[in-house]
Write a protein that binds this DNA or RNA. Structure first.
Lengths: 222, 222, 222, 222
DNA sequence: CATGAATGAGTGTTCATTCAT
DNA sequence: TATGAATGAACACTCATTCAT
């Protein structure tokens, strides 16, 4: 008992509120899941990183899978919903909105550990089908919807050409996915770095120009 | 690691030692790794699928990691090299070459089990850094190079606008990555399907149009 | 065990320390122990059923084992003592007394949760030897004594044949044990049901007739 | 690796046949299950007692439950079937057959570790319903059948009184159950011992006499 | 070469017990 | 006195790896 060394012997076993533990565990779990993938993530490590013992995890989450779902539900979905909200309320030109959404997502994807979630799902979809289904239904569908609606409005307003709306959204999202994976997964192992702003500039330059109807100006030149 | 004694230290660890069973094992391993990911792949299953026993695997590959590297080395890299070769030898318009390369990759990515390798690396990069480094250096660098050279030539020949060549390649590859992941990983769990040809059409339509210099025609209209 | 310091070493470990919550906890514990067995009984469930928290249990009982002993001491032994008392005070024919005792026990064994205690001891005797010894000494010996004395008197009064008194008591108790176990443990999982009254009738018919001395009438025919 | 101390370093890891391991594991499992009950039995202990490691168990049995079922199927049921066979083929007086069956069972129940199986089922029926159902259907039903048929024939042949055949079998079995439990579970913890032959003598004396039709002699007097 | 029996370290999950509040 | 958050040891089961045959 009390084998943890390097801590003051007087440290109380718990003084923190139940309300604080949950988020702390969640934060630790994001790190570990992101770094290791769902299957390889060890709850021991999550616990250690959260400063608790393994048993404590089960006071807050029913099991490993519930822990993962909680990450998506409490961290990822709210941001998505927020982005969706803003997009739906927006009344200006679709081009400007698209730019803004892309930049917002790019920041979220790179600046926060949440950018690792897509990788996580990709990694473990094969072995945890329910998890994959959950992610596809909850996250992908929503995210695709945001882009679809913007593109749709752009076409309706004459800003965009009459593109194939059924597949244009994923095409536009592709470079974002690559950015997320590169920045979060591969770049740490690579010699070459990619500058985010430079990448976003090229990305929006190419894609927007590919979408615009003839005669419509690029938004930043307006 | 590398506990086997009495072997030349210079022998690369990923190389198989025999010629007969090796390819069969490799083929089986691709299937299993692709379906399950690196960590979750069970050597039992690889052995069963290859029609040998688990013990036999170790006659051909030092361990699980060596088996994976062999896949990349013997299956993925040759195709990449081949594509690179063709691109370098091509002398026509960059637009046409770009279109062809994209279609070739799209077919490979969807039709063959190799399309799952990127997912696999993405999934396990965190747990096997050496594997990630190996993949980034050997595969990504080469693949990016193919695109870069095409774009570069397109700009030089006046077909493409003066885009930022440092980041344009990954931007163009993004939708391909998304296609690979969607088709191989997520679509089985989704209600909505994406039609490959439709997707490729929209993808090339948007991206090519975004790249073309003013006044240049889209290649399929020529 | 017995890590609590500062307590009289002479205080029996099974005794509860307070008077208010104790009985409620005990009642809850009987239910849970009976339903799950000693090892599988979760103190969480006992606490919940008693309307207290797990921590509170430890204010009243040193540990799980002490809780179990308390059940036997405070619930089972008093009833046994009572039955013994009655048997000792009885002056009529042994046949009638035997019948009455059997019926009383049968009712207790089936109608109340205490009928599950024998099963419980049987189940966990191997893992908790002290518990078994305690049960054999305190419960079995007393129960056997009740039967022994009745049989003894029946023989002395000429009602019963000169049976082997050393082993006749357990023989007579056997069908009761089977009834207790069948009704409490196995019947819920069986297709076939046993009617208690029918069983008791056959049991007393066979056993009593097997005991009676030649020429003595069965009591209910008198 | 090879941390097992106290073994000859030259001891081969396995020289025994697969055919021998199964029974050895089964024998070990009977001991452990019998001593501890199903839930409390640790597979570590089974493995140790069988002289293998835990992992090896899973080469022979799918899981703990399968291990238990195998005991019943391969050890208990064959003996029951054999007894049933003999009983069905028997043509002499029911009294003699009943005596013989009782003695056979008594010997099996006491002399072998199988006598502990009933206790085991009793103990864990509540927590492992499927296990209980399996036992009730496979074992109890068969065992009860043997007794029922004998009694039935005894009544038909005029040897026994017209007893209630629906419940007479369990009544007759009761003392056997008690014997099994006493000898295997409780006697090790008791001061008083029960002599098996003495017990059987009293048991058959009382029960048979209780069954016999008026005027029929006890078999051992014939 | 090939086999397949055996290993044993590793991980998710449970639960009796403790103890700061 | 009571709480309930936290602990940590325990255990079933998996699977990469080894090695006698």
């Amino acid at each position: 008992m009390a084998k943890k060394t390097g801590k003051q012997a007087t440290a109380p076993r718990w003084r923190r509120r139940k309300d604080e533990r949950g988020p702390e565990i969640l934060a630790a779990a994001i790190d570990v899941f992101a770094a290791r993938g769902f299957a390889a993530a060890r709850l021991d490590e999550v616990a250690a990183r959260a400063g608790v013992t393994k048993g404590t995890l089960y006071l807050y989450f029913e099991n490993k899978e519930a822990l993962f779902k909680a990450i998506v539900h409490e961290q990822l979905l709210p941001r998505l919903a927020e982005a969706d909200e803003r997009a739906r309320g927006y009344t200006g030109p679709a081009t400007v909105l698209l730019l803004e959404v892309i930049k917002t997502i790019a920041d979220a994807v790179i600046g926060t550990r949440l950018g690792l979630i897509p990788k996580l799902v990709i990694a473990d979809a094969g072995n945890f089908p329910e998890l994959a289904r959950f992610y596809v239904d909850e996250v992908i569908a929503r995210g695709m919807g945001v882009f679809s609606r913007i593109l749709e409005r752009g076409v309706a307003q004459g800003e965009f050409r009459k593109i194939d709306l059924a597949v244009a959204a994923p095409v536009c999202i592709g470079p974002l996915l690559l950015l997320a994976i590169w920045k979060n997964v591969l770049e740490p192992h690579a010699k070459r770095k990619i500058d985010k702003d430079q990448y976003i500039a090229a990305y929006t330059d190419i894609v927007l120009r590919g979408l615009l109807a003839p005669g419509v100006e690029m938004p930043w030149k307006a």
